[in-house]
């Protein structure tokens, strides 16, 4: 009897003591969490994939709440849930969902091994940042891609890879979430996040200047076969005032660009403007357009198969 009583009392006392300790500990060490974080977490997929760049969905939720306090959810995207989820998150946080224009990373350098001769050899840590600090790089172009792949290392989605033949990174449009990590990793600011562009025939059409060289024409020309030399031809042909020329370098404003392709044809010597589709070359009025022959039939086919956008485009271009 006595034994049982002692056991009960001792255990009871221990239990009471432990519960008191727990009670005070929970008060003392209570972590206050913004209730919104929990709410946001609930609408997230809970895949905890880390694809957003944060440690799991709760990390992303916390980041969203913090960003919302700053006034905007820009740059925050759950690649699994996509736009619908982000709209829900925005609703919880009392913000407008960011404009849903899909974007993609674009590499603005075409200085492949053929186009850009190597003049010195780089020896050091395989890092663009280090190479950039060492000097202009292996070529005479001090603005172009260094080819060490910092962007590839920065990408969490396996969406950018070095092409061993050209020595340049290539973006996988399907996988790219336009998170901008590669753009930040690039010490030369070569990678730009641009709108994917209007979809025609299942592929998005966008145009960009495939060069970031700000050197004067002759220097840029010597450094690379496909550099922008700032001649301004594209600026003249653009009907939408989308192209500006600054520091010997053309830039196409994606907001104004209608992807008509005129500039691509204008840049027929340096080929420094890149388009994601085969731009029809106008019927040769003069004989200096040998590329016209193979490109033209395709262009006609394009018009035939997709009459609507083509019709939209043509009058504007002619206006």
């Amino acid at each position: 009897m006595n034994v049982i009583l002692i056991a009960v009392i001792v255990l009871g006392a221990i239990g009471l003591l432990a519960s008191l300790v727990l009670f005070f500990a929970s008060k003392k060490f209570a972590v206050h969490e913004d209730p919104r974080i929990g709410q946001v977490s609930e609408v997230l997929p809970q895949a905890n994939c880390g694809g957003c760049g944060f440690p799991g969905c709760s990390g992303f939720a916390a980041a969203c709440v913090k960003a919302a306090d700053g006034g905007s959810l820009e740059g925050k995207l759950c690649p699994v849930g996509g736009q619908p989820v982000m709209e829900k998150v925005a609703a919880i946080l009392g913000l407008e969902a960011a404009a849903a224009e899909p974007k993609v990373a674009v590499v603005r350098c075409n200085g492949s091994c053929q186009n850009r001769p190597r003049i010195v050899e780089y020896d050091g840590a395989i890092s663009c940042r280090v190479a950039n600090a060492t000097g202009a790089g292996e070529t005479a172009c001090q603005f172009g891609c260094l080819g060490c792949g910092d962007c590839v290392a920065a990408c969490k989605f396996d969406a950018i890879h070095m092409n061993p033949e050209t020595g340049l990174p290539e973006v996988d449009e399907e996988k790219c979430t336009a998170c901008g990590a590669c753009s930040k990793a690039c010490p030369r600011n070569i990678i730009e996040i641009r709108p994917k562009g209007r979809v025609v025939k299942g592929s998005a059409r966008r145009v960009w200047v495939d060069c970031v060289n700000k050197d004067k024409g002759p220097v840029a020309m010597k450094a690379c076969n496909v550099s922008c030399i700032g001649c301004g031809k594209c600026v003249k042909v653009c009907k939408f005032e989308a192209i500006t020329l600054e520091n010997n370098l053309a830039y196409i404003d994606p907001e104004k660009c209608k992807a008509c392709g005129q500039c691509v044809n204008a840049c027929n010597v340096r080929h420094a403007i890149h388009a994601t589709w085969e731009v029809p070359v106008p019927k040769p009025k003069t004989e200096d357009a040998p590329a016209a022959a193979p490109a033209a039939p395709k262009a006609e086919a394009a018009v035939a198969e997709a009459p609507k956008p083509a019709a939209e485009e043509t009058p504007k271009a002619e206006a």
Partner: peptide, 12 residues
């Protein structure tokens, strides 16, 4: 190892 290469970047 390219220690200083990396340290320089870090320092900058």
């Amino acid at each position: 190892r390219p220690l200083l290469d990396n340290i320089r970047i870090g320092k900058q």
